[in-house]
Write a protein that binds this DNA or RNA. Sequence first.
DNA 1: CAAGTAGTTTAGAATAATTATAAAGTAATT
DNA 2: AATTACTTTATAATTATTCTAAACTACTTG
Lengths: 135, 135
Amino acid sequence: MNNLNIYKEKLRESGLRPTRQRLKICEALFSPKETFHFTINDLSKIIEEKLDEKISLATVYNTVHAFKKNGYLKEIVIATDKSYFDTNTGTHSHFFDIKNKELIDINQVDLKDIPNPPTGKKIKNIDVIINVESE
Amino acid sequence: MNNLNIYKEKLRESGLRPTRQRLKICEALFSPKETFHFTINDLSKIIEEKLDEKISLATVYNTVHAFKKNGYLKEIVIATDKSYFDTNTGTHSHFFDIKNKELIDINQVDLKDIPNPPTGKKIKNIDVIINVESE
DNA sequence: CAAGTAGTTTAGAATAATTATAAAGTAATT
DNA sequence: AATTACTTTATAATTATTCTAAACTACTTG
Ligand SMILES: [Mn+2]
Ligand SMILES: [Mn+2]
Ligand SMILES: [Zn+2]
Ligand SMILES: [Zn+2]
């Protein structure tokens, strides 16, 4: 299955029609050999500069959120004023360089003990961010 | 040492003069027997409704940030569009109820192994958030 | 204490990320 | 080809936060 069909499949799975804009977004997100972390603005720039297409921000936001909801992207919560996303959807943890605002993948960090959640609540997921800075 | 002097001390330590507004903020933050989590807006409302004083948002932001910088408050990073702070400055971890946007303190969760940071970077702190939801 | 100055408060403006809107455009179905 | 449902877009709205500069106040000093 070639890339184009993989993109169409992911879109279909996410309940989205394969439009020209969405396929470009897929190309930006899923064609690189290595996974990567990005903000909406990063992604928008990549599409504009490398893929030579200008897509409205609303469409980028909508598509990224749809992919997140359907598990093709993850959101990484860090101490910053903008949202970061990750094309690496496998279970893993992160270093976060506070100064450069850069995320670095690491193998999943396991906890010694997982505490029991309050009655009536169940654990959805656990976020571990190791904040680092240049010395 | 009475509360008032404790507040003045914290302010002095933070390089801030003990103004009427800042002392009210201290009262809201440090007089409760139990520590608590709050947003700037929460804090502003507490001061307005319970302490009967209207303080401009700029002052609340400035004072909270000064206290954070000086270790009298911590900021908790969670998946939300606003900043959360904590009057519990001891080392501890959190459950975060995604639906209610509520933080719950738990004992510090230890990691099985702390990964080595990339060369030239050192660990500043580690954030662990256990996201939960009502079942 | 009076005056000087350095720091503070405030309302309102500015900024910035994100979301909402609604008109024009496109993909899918018949 | 026509119809329908979905999509894109420019633009406005929203919201948290930061900035600004004028009025105000705490502190120091004579
Ligand atoms: Mn935001
Ligand atoms: Mn923000
Ligand atoms: Zn990652
Ligand atoms: Zn806490």
